[in-house]
Design a protein around this nucleic acid. Structure first.
Length: 301
DNA sequence: CGGATTTGACCTGCGC
DNA sequence: GCGCAGGTCAAATCCG
C-alpha cells in the first residue's frame, strides 16, 4: 500500500490552460496524465492568469460553481464549440466574480455557519433556539469560502486526495440521476468541505468541489487508494475529446505546487497497482491531489 | 465501542 | 410571500 503513495515519473501531469473559452470560461484548467484526466477550475483568482489575460475581462478573477452551473441550465452556453459534454457543462457554468476580499482571504472567518462546526453540536438540535447559533448569519450574507472544482474521469465518486473526509450529507441533484455527497475534513480544526457529484452529462466524470483551506497537512494515503485502480481503468478509455480546447500557452513550473503531479499508479505485479516515486525533488507527497492543486498561498499551515 | 455513514428533517437563499 | 433547491444537522445505523 505504501507504494501507492509514490508518484510515477512517467505519469507527470501537464497542465494547459484554456483561456478565453466561451468568452467567460477563463478559469478552467485541464491536466492529464497517462492514466487520469481532470479539469481544474480555478475559483480563487489565484495568480494563474497569463500576461495575456491578466487585466482583461474584469481581471479574470472569478469563481466557478459547477453546481450552480447546472442549476443555471447552462444558460451561459453560447459560443462554445462542440466538445465533450461534461467538460462543456463545467465550462459553461455560471462564473461568479470573487468580488469579496473575504473569499480570497483565509484569515476572514467568513462563513459563520461553517467555520465552527462544533458550535452547532454545542447548541443541540434543530429546535428554534438552536437557530440562535445561526443568528449571526442574519444580517450578513453567507460568505463562501474559496472554492475550486475539478473533474475527474473515475468510476469512484470519492477520490482520494490525501485528506480524511467524513461524509455529512447527501442530496439528490435536480436534473441529475446522481446524488451529490457532502464531505467535511475529519480534522476538527479544519473547516474544509468538499462536494462530490457525478456529471449527469457524462457519468464517467466526477465533479469534485473543494471549499476552504486545510489548516493541516494531509494524512498521506492511508487507504488503499482503490479509486486509483478504477481510475486507471477509466483513463485508459479516455479520448482527447477536449484536447482541442487545451492551449499550451501556459506551462506551470513542474516544481511549483501547480506542477499537477498527483500521485499516480502504474500497473504492478499480481494485477495490483502501485506508485513509483517522482524523480523530481519535492516535499514528501503528503498533500495528495489537493496539495498539488492548491497553491501554497491557499493553504494554512 | 468508537468512528463513519445514512437519511430524513430543517434551514437558508434565491427566483418568481 | 411562496415555493424550490441546495446545504447542513443529527439521530439512527452500520462497520471494523
Amino acid at each position: 500500500m505504501d507504494e501507492k503513495d509514490k508518484v510515477n515519473p512517467a505519469n507527470e501531469f501537464s497542465i494547459q490552460s484554456s483561456w478565453g473559452l466561451g468568452g467567460d470560461s477563463d478559469s478552467v484548467y485541464s491536466f492529464f496524465g497517462n492514466d487520469r484526466e481532470s479539469t481544474i477550475l480555478n475559483e480563487f483568482g489565484w495568480n494563474l492568469q497569463t500576461p495575456d489575460t491578466a487585466g482583461s475581462e474584469a481581471g479574470g478573477i472569478r469563481e466557478f460553481d459547477p453546481i450552480e452551473s447546472e442549476l443555471a441550465g447552462n444558460s451561459a452556453v453560447q459560443s462554445l464549440p462542440e466538445r465533450d459534454s461534461a467538460f462543456q457543462e463545467v465550462q459553461t457554468g455560471i462564473i461568479e466574480k470573487v468580488g469579496d476580499a473575504s473569499i480570497s482571504n483565509p484569515s476572514v472567518s467568513s462563513s459563520s455557519s461553517e467555520d465552527h462546526p462544533e458550535k452547532s453540536t454545542a447548541s443541540g438540535g434543530k429546535q428554534p433556539s438552536e437557530t440562535a447559533s445561526k443568528v449571526k448569519k442574519k444580517g450578513q450574507k453567507r460568505i463562501r469560502q474559496p472554492r475550486f472544482a475539478f473533474m475527474t474521469k473515475s468510476e469512484v465518486d470519492h477520490l482520494e486526495d490525501g485528506y480524511r473526509w467524513r461524509k455529512y450529507g447527501q442530496k439528490a441533484v435536480k436534473n441529475s440521476p446522481y446524488p451529490r455527497s457532502y464531505y467535511r475534513c475529519t480534522n476538527s480544526k479544519c473547516t474544509v468541505k468538499k462536494r462530490v457529484e457525478r456529471s449527469s452529462e457524462d457519468p464517467t466524470t466526477v465533479i469534485t468541489t473543494y471549499e476552504g483551506q486545510h489548516c493541516h497537512h494531509t494524512v498521506g494515503f492511508p487507504r488503499g487508494g482503490g479509486f486509483i485502480s478504477h481510475e486507471t481503468t477509466i483513463a485508459s478509455q479516455l479520448t482527447p475529446s477536449g484536447s482541442q480546447f487545451y492551449y499550451p500557452s501556459i506551462q506551470f513550473p513542474q516544481q511549483s505546487s501547480l506542477g499537477f503531479r498527483p500521485t499516480q499508479e502504474v500497473p504492478g505485479e499480481s494485477g495490483q497497482t502501485h506508485r513509483v516515486p517522482d524523480s523530481t525533488p519535492r516535499l514528501p507527497t503528503d498533500e495528495g491531489l489537493l496539495g498539488d492543486i492548491v497553491p501554497p498561498g491557499m493553504r494554512n499551515r
